[in-house]
């Protein structure tokens, strides 16, 4: 009786130790690709891709269920970066990209209701009740989250204006 109890206890303890050590040293980490893709995404959780936030989109993209080009605010640049990271072939010309966009408040339509303020994931809209709101260009990601809540349709997206320091010499025509 005692011998049986002892031998089973010793066996159990030894195997448990082996399992515990193996669990520590042979652990399979969570998919690193997901974390890296999430890092490339804008992180504003605007939801335009149809997934629950950027983390959800990263899981879907890494699993191959969504295209790397599914992020509208990220545009071509983010799509190409993700495709390169995942080693997926992506035709740059096929991505519909109007270039970076910015939200613009039409001052004659804004009634100062503050609804867009709450919807902005980056706090890029400033305003107070019954005061005209405005968009901080440097903070706006052009995610369009503010378009829907506006009761007067005063907000629209416009292409980011080209300024002198940001001008890029056009590519010469190919020979």
């Amino acid at each position: 009786m005692l011998a049986a109890v002892l031998s089973l206890t010793v066996l159990g303890a030894a195997l448990g130790l082996v399992l515990g050590v193996a669990g520590k040293f042979l652990a399979v980490e969570a998919n690193v690709a997901v974390a890296e893709v999430e890092k490339l995404l804008p992180g504003t959780n605007c939801g335009q891709c149809g997934f629950p936030g950027c983390a959800g989109a990263a899981v879907a993209i890494a699993a191959g269920e969504a295209s790397p080009a599914c992020c509208p605010p990220g545009g071509k640049a983010v799509a190409m970066a993700i495709a390169e990271r995942l080693g997926v072939a992506l035709d740059a010309a096929s991505i519909d990209d109007d270039g970076p966009q910015l939200a613009l408040v039409a001052e004659d339509l804004c009634i100062g209701c503050c609804r867009c303020l709450k919807s902005c994931p980056t706090d890029a809209i400033v305003g107070a009740p019954r005061q005209i709101h405005n968009v901080l260009r440097d903070a706006c990601t052009g995610c369009a989250a503010c378009l829907e809540p506006c009761p007067t349709e005063a907000i629209r997206l416009v292409p980011m204006p080209v300024t002198l320091p940001h001008w890029v010499m056009p590519r010469p025509l190919a020979a």
Partner: peptide, 29 residues
Amino acid sequence: YFAHARGRLAAEERARLRLDATRKMAQAK
């Protein structure tokens, strides 16, 4: 060609910095 490439690389770098900044803002919010 070289000026074009420099401009594009600078634009990519700017976009990356902007992305980092806006991500921080979104996390802060």
